[in-house]
Simulated assay, not measured.
Amino acid sequence: MLVIRPIEQRDFAILKQIAIESGHGFTSLPVNDELLQNKIDHSMASFASRAGGKGECLYFFVAEDSETGEVLGTTALESAVGLSSPFYTYLLGKQVHSSRKLGIHNVVETLTLTNDYTGVSELCTLFLREPARQGLNGRLLSKCRFLFLAEFPELFDQRVLAEMRGVSDDAGNSPFWSWLQEHFFSMDFPTVDYLTGIGQKGFIADLMPKYPIYVSLLSKEARAVIGKTHDKTRPALHLLEEEGFCWRGYVDIFDAGPTVECEVRHIRTVRSSRRLTVRIGHPVQARTHLISNTRFEGFRALLGDMAVNEQQGQAVLTAKVARLLKVEDGDTVRVAELKHHD
């Protein structure tokens, strides 16, 4: 069984391995020892001193196999983006070129560089290792963050975004970036991707075109991938769409992958989750639930079978599930039932 917990210093080696496995385009996990260590430090500091409100905090979790202790995935929440360094996106919009006298009316698409998501919270760093890509593990990794959001809403913005990896090939070549590189830059996509991952974003402001780009001027290959998601990222996008996330025309400035968003109060798992009191026993007519304890620094979450005693407001958990969540009789858990279409 996979258990979600905050990342710890002992996870450094496996985090680096996951960064290697994640490949090109996964900007939030660069293969750089210093930056990976910084992420661990940032998350541990965020958990160690709970902010009074929304700050620039990182809540980084790992998925650990309860039997072997092996870390098989990562998932994270950033409380606010773009505060200490700019958070850029392109907005896909329209301009109208019209002349009534000539009888001409053309609507053309444009890409405009924006910082519109400044201060918005972000879902990030979702990665499940190959051996664990089965069953409901992907759902746990994605949805556990919504229980944390529901339990600690004061730490986050009212809106949450998620950047989806855009289209690139196995060698890391992005059709969208290839066009930008030819006209504005002289760096290949893996290099730009790496520099962004390690926080060196100054070149973006220096070299990116400041005026809207007419989409019709892009290569056919670049136009075809605007707002499209990498094959390996489609399952993650589907899970977010089930939760109520949608695309409003914002795309990544390097690979043109879509950025999806949702208000926290509209996220399905946030809305359907509730707090119940723990009773350890033998669940009758148990159903699969997403379950977390309600601790901050000691947060734990998993997918397990449990029963609900509606009259008593109780979650009836097995001793094993209670042990993995580090809860006892009378403690509080937050739960959300997985429906059949989950």
Rank of each mutant, 00 (worst) to 15 (best):
I104P: 01
F61R: 07
V96W: 02
I198Q: 01
F299W: 10
K16F: 09
A162F: 06
T294D: 12
N137I: 09
Y211E: 14
H24E: 15
Y88G: 01
L290E: 05
I14E: 14
K16E: 15
R279Q: 11
F296P: 03
D206W: 00
D33S: 15
S66C: 11
P190S: 07
R295N: 15
P258K: 06
F203M: 05
F47H: 01
E337K: 12
I291K: 00
E242D: 11
F60M: 00
S292A: 15
P212N: 02
V270Y: 12
I267L: 10
E34D: 14
L35K: 12
E337P: 10
G103M: 07
R139I: 14
K201I: 11
M306V: 10
T75Y: 04
L218Q: 04
W177H: 06
I7K: 00
S98F: 14
G73M: 01
V316G: 01
C262K: 06
R129T: 15
S292Q: 08
G257P: 05
Y117W: 12
I104E: 10
F12P: 02
A80C: 08
V251Y: 05
N106L: 15
V81W: 00
G23L: 07
L102V: 08
S174M: 04
S216G: 12
Y117P: 02
E70G: 04
